[in-house]
Amino acid sequence: MNILELRDVHRTHGVGDVAVHALAGVDLTVAEGELVAVMGPSGSGKSTLLNCAGGLDRPTSGDVLVEGKPLAGLTRKQLAALRRRSIGYVFQDLNLLHSLTAVENIALPLELDGVSPRRAHRIAVQSLDEVGLGDLAGRFPDDMSGGQQQRVAIARALVGDRRLVLADEPTGALDSVTGESVLRLLRARVDAGAAGVLVTHEARHAGWADRVVFLRDGNIVDTSGPLAQPEDLLATGGAG
């Protein structure tokens, strides 16, 4: 089942001679259990694609469907509800609230969505457990390392029944091993039945995806297709 579908999506900023075509007819589907990485140079449209997919930006033309529902037909309120319930965002800028503890940061969106505080707390603790931070539930973000904060942000993005996870350079400035643990979490969530889109300029991160699409000037110019059996690779000898 396709969780995310972009059909001939255009997004133009400005008009006339100064118009910038951030997206120029992008078609992309992401199925349940599939992680798609988007790579491309600065200004190629990666973040615009992610914002359109997540209902944070509206396409100039074309359709975006999340779990089969066209976003264009939703009211502002319905769109906000969809963003809270169905879509998880992990951005480089973590947007954690510093006056709230780790567990409160995760419980807040649930409570806003009508979940009882006690239940929201329980779900949030469980979510922190999943990212290996169950012991730090009561800590404030400022008392945590960068990697721990990023894990809290991931836990918040994945909490509840979100089926679509959108990540924009989710490892930020983390060291490579800590960064990799973030990718593993994302991968595990997708394998458990979500769909994921990962915007990155790091090929090592894109390696965790099932498919990598390359954007240039608002167009998808290439896609890495289906994978061979990995066991065949080493036998033939090396990366060269």
């Binding site: 090929a203 390696g207 099932d210 290439d222 890495s224 994978l227 990995p230």
Partner: peptide, 21 residues
């Protein structure tokens, strides 16, 4: 350049799978 990039990224996907498994 793009042809090479796609091929190398695909190789990386395969290595990553190998590592994850």
């Amino acid at each position: 350049l793009q042809g090479q990039r796609t091929a190398t990224v695909r190789t990386m996907q395969e290595y990553t799978r190998l590592k994850a498994s």
